[in-house]
């Protein structure tokens, strides 16, 4: 995972060399430590201190009415985001719906110059016209499979696990 994050950090630096005003926004919950790690990696590459924030999209989700665990986590926006380059960071990119919600949330804070997306895992099955600019690993899955990323900061351990959907069951995934 460290190698993958370092590669993403290099790609971000390549596309946005200093002194571009770069902000990393982690999506609650596991995108947040990923954004912090990326910020440290970028600092190791070119010495820039990058602000890492957190964004919670739960008030913007289109499936809010259908979810039972309505828990809102804090958003932390580092300073004014007007005109800055924002890289949204999340662990798994799936339907794209939570990214859509995060974009709505983000735009309520200001008008960034650019918003890009970095994800650790892209598992496919998009339901919206959204793609990632930086991908750690493409992971072919079926819709009903369960992809779990665990991070030391949250779960005590770094790993990615694919739990296949039971055979013969309808696989409508997160929809």
């Amino acid at each position: 995972m460290r190698r993958v994050l370092m590669r993403i950090a290099h790609e971000i630096v390549e596309r946005h060399p200093p002194p571009e005003p770069l902000v990393l926004m982690g999506m609650q919950t596991r995108g947040v430590p990923l954004a912090e790690r990326l910020a440290l990696s970028i600092e190791a590459i070119d010495g820039r201190r990058i602000a890492a924030g957190a964004i919670d999209n739960s008030l913007y989700r289109d499936d809010l009415a259908r979810r039972s665990t309505a828990r809102i986590l804090p958003s932390r926006i580092p300073g004014d985001i007007d005109g800055s380059v924002i890289v949204l960071v999340d662990d798994v990119l799936f339907t794209g719906r939570s990214i859509r919600a995060a974009l709505d949330a983000l735009i309520d804070y200001g008008r960034p110059a650019v918003i890009e997306l970095a994800v650790l895992i892209d598992r496919g099955h998009r339901e919206l016209p959204i793609r990632a600019d930086y991908v750690g690993k493409n992971l072919p899955t079926r819709r009903g499979d369960d992809v779990r990323v665990r991070l030391a900061e949250v779960d005590g351990v770094d790993d990615v696990a694919l739990h296949p959907a039971p055979l013969g069951l309808p696989t409508d995934g997160g929809r």
Binding site: L59, L64, I72, D108, Y109
Partner: peptide, 19 residues
Amino acid sequence: ETARAMQEVLARPVARTPA
């Protein structure tokens, strides 16, 4: 805890969400 998150919403430039 939820109210604390709401306080953050209120501090935004656009304090309005579609929740």
